[in-house]
């Protein structure tokens, strides 16, 4: 599903954020990406989502070398991904429904199809019946679940979550992690960046650990 082949990322003014990172993620696998703050977790995810370009090495996503993807093709790569952020990145002036529908709208789905899929996604995250609400009327945990519904509504094959539980209390964090497990169980590949060591150790999944941009533990 995802291959990192000797990938380095250098920011012009901040030096190397990633150095020589190599790993492979099998289809349907779930893994945690961990490490101290500034270790390069977000950078690694941004490279996959093509929010940044790697300086050296190759990233192969679903058989496609991202170095060879032109700017015009980036949207089509992103449509295969489900992105989840620590700050949810919801549109506060749009309803829950419209937020979740966004990936389908940008991909040009028919509105019947959109309604059906959005409700299915909201159902999966336990928010069915809340679609007319605005994000700020929801709790933090609910907002993050809206973010997750938006990430999965397009039926992505790879979910990338950057500190999805960073703003949530332990109980809600557990719930959210459990959601990811459910997606993994239906065949979706999941990569979660988190520095919540406790939570990660309680779950039995592969851990990729970054330290100052280098992969120090794999497995």
């Amino acid at each position: 599903m995802l291959t990192f082949d000797h990938v380095s990322k250098r920011y012009p003014d901040a030096g190397d954020a990633l150095q020589n990172v190599s790993f492979y993620l099998a289809p349907g696998e779930m893994a945690f990406l961990t490490g101290h703050s500034g270790a390069g977790k977000s950078t690694l995810l941004k490279l996959i989502a093509m929010m940044e370009k790697c300086s050296r090495g190759h990233i192969i996503l679903a058989g496609k070398n991202l170095n060879r993807v032109s700017e015009r093709q980036i949207p089509y790569i992103r449509r295969q991904l489900g992105l989840i952020f620590q700050d949810y990145k919801l549109l506060l002036d749009r309803t829950v429904f419209d937020n979740v529908a966004l990936p389908l709208v940008v991909s040009g789905y028919h509105h019947h199809e959109i309604g059906r899929r959005v409700r299915a996604a909201l159902d999966k995250v336990g928010l069915l019946g809340q679609e007319k609400k605005y994000p700020l009327a929801l709790s933090g945990g609910e907002q993050q679940r809206v973010g997750i519904a938006r990430a999965v509504v397009n039926k992505p094959r790879l979910i990338l979550a950057d500190e999805p539980t960073g703003n949530l209390d332990p109980e809600l964090s557990e719930e959210v992690m459990h959601l990811f497990e459910q997606f993994q169980q239906v065949g979706v590949t999941v990569l979660i960046a988190s520095h919540d060591i406790d939570l990660i150790s309680r779950m039995n999944y592969r851990v990729l650990k970054l330290d100052h941009g280098q992969l120090v533990q794999e497995g």
Binding site: A49, P75, K89, L90, L102, P103
Partner: peptide, 16 residues
């Protein structure tokens, strides 16, 4: 700006 950014992150094309 935020809206444009989010739309891009979920796969919106330039044209969209």
């Amino acid at each position: 700006r935020e809206e444009v950014l989010i739309a891009k992150l979920v796969g919106a094309t330039h044209a969209f």
